[in-house]
Amino acid sequence: MGAIKKFMYINRTAPYGSIYSLEGLEVALIGAAFDQDVSMAFVDDGVFQLKKGQDTSKSGMKNFSLAYSALGDYDITKLYVEKESLQARGLTVEDLMPLTYEDQDDDYQEKPSIRVVDSEQLADIIAEQDVLLNY
């Protein structure tokens, strides 16, 4: 299928209030089967997707936040969280789910998937992508 492309899923919406983040995650999970270079960015209200302790038992919706923990199994190991978006919402990285992956090149060491980056770093990472999808 030719050269590997850099796919980035940019998540800017909060969970539950709309379906974008859930259906966006479905794209990422399916896309993982295509062996492209995949990363995700969490910007603006998208950072709320990673908030730990989500409990939908009283809202009757599906708690799909649990599925983010499976991203490592799908070889999606680069989750960029924008520092400015976290700060603007009064969150720190401790508020987020501790997502990890097993590094196959390093004896299956468990490593954190979440990388907090500032706007300028993220702008550079975005500029390096080939395909950008937004949720």
Binding site: L29, A32, F64, L66, S69, D73, Y74
Partner: peptide
């Protein structure tokens, strides 16, 4: 644990 069925390769 994850609320999804794993893909076959997973």
């Amino acid at each position: 644990k994850y609320q999804i069925a794993p893909a076959v390769r997973v």
